[in-house]
Nucleic acid binder design. Sequence first.
DNA 1: CTTCCAGGATTACAGGCGTAATCGTCCGGG
DNA 2: CCCGGACGATTACGCCTGTAATCCTGGAAG
Lengths: 123, 123
Amino acid sequence: MRISTAESLIMEALWRRSPLSAEDIVADVGPEQNWSDKTVKTLLNRLLTKQAISATPEGRRYLYAPAIERADYVQEESRGLIDRLFDGRLAPLVSHFAETKQLTADDIAELKRLIRELEEDGQ
Amino acid sequence: MRISTAESLIMEALWRRSPLSAEDIVADVGPEQNWSDKTVKTLLNRLLTKQAISATPEGRRYLYAPAIERADYVQEESRGLIDRLFDGRLAPLVSHFAETKQLTADDIAELKRLIRELEEDGQ
DNA sequence: CTTCCAGGATTACAGGCGTAATCGTCCGGG
DNA sequence: CCCGGACGATTACGCCTGTAATCCTGGAAG
């Protein structure tokens, strides 16, 4: 099942560090989003039913941990976008960013480096 | 206001060609998505209230046309994703695609060409 | 004229989402 | 031994979405 954006913030916290108690997570994302602890608990429960996280009892409470890889999530999200908007190909996206001047010199340098690596690997 | 994914399919049709009557749009996207004409009409109305399209009377009916640029839409969507998942930078996304082996030799060649152009423009 | 139909406008309705509040329970403090 | 509070579980609720169905109106057809 799909992870919503609010839920993904919880996931990010758990991907950064896990396992965490609900309290830890509230402390982590609560202030930033200013969410009440109730909200965080709700999101945790939804993620549980979606089987995106796991909960293991620890005393009177649970410790939560991701049950899916961040890479897989990132994968689906970005492939979805690229398929929807750029005909499934990455280059047009990069091209779009270039045209709309959203690339710094650093970005370009880094891309260049990446491409060189890819070419070397390729052959 | 945000354009939903179903709505975006209507937008794509209008970006391809406009203005179109509701009937045209139904003929265009209906079969593909197998949506009833009712569904398409609903989406058109929602897009109207979101001011994403315009409607001009033509006889007894309307002709619809985009009121926002596809580039702007693409912009928001892709920036949103990159901000959420890749710390706002493009290179990590490209890197992710590379690592997950989602790049063909053609993709790489095209990226290379893009980068070269960017470098030339840059100086 | 009356009727039917095409087309837009309005209404529907279940499920997801953001954001909580309330309920029930068990443990620790007095 | 009883009570309050920490926690998780359950319930709430309005808005957005996907997907239509129904209503209304004015012109076309007979």
